[in-house]
């Protein structure tokens, strides 16, 4: 059976050219204002830009593989206000704003499916 692509699509996702995000979309404006600028390098220095883009792709690939390794594993979330919850990790959206999890063990019970807002998370741990 085909496994679905582990990228969660939320309303107003990336622009249709798959280049990332549309900086004019309301979602981007409301959530990503503090997001990292695409490049600190000026356009004139194309060699530097190329090096930066290569570094970016290496780092991102590693991160995505890490997310893949995390899928269907028990993950502990450490959140603000000393909240610690456990859940089975599902997926993340491309701009790392939300995590989709299953069986979220909250202090008042188990939530079958949930989205965790990444801004509320300090760190998360899992075992390989």
């Amino acid at each position: 059976m085909a496994t679905p692509v582990p990228v969660l699509r939320l309303p107003k996702g990336p622009d249709p050219n798959s280049r990332g995000f549309d900086p004019k979309s309301p979602r981007y404006i409301s959530l990503c204002r503090t997001s990292i600028s695409s490049s600190a390098v000026s356009d004139a220095d194309s060699e530097e830009l190329q090096r930066e883009q290569h570094a970016r792709s290496v780092l991102r690939e590693r991160f995505l593989r890490c997310l893949l390794a995390m899928a269907n594993k028990k993950v502990h979330f450490h959140m603000f206000e000393k909240v610690k919850v456990e859940a089975t990790f599902g997926a993340s959206d491309i701009d790392v704003l939300n995590f989709q999890v299953s069986d979220l063990h909250t202090p008042i019970g188990v939530q079958k499916e949930a989205l965790i807002r990444c801004q509320d998370v300090i760190s998360l741990t899992f075992d390989l």
């Binding site: 990292i36 970016r56 991102r60 991160f63 890490c66």
Partner: peptide, 9 residues
């Protein structure tokens, strides 16, 4: 291991 270039995580 890595730093996510999108979220700096």
């Amino acid at each position: 291991l890595t730093v996510d270039p999108v979220s700096a995580s």
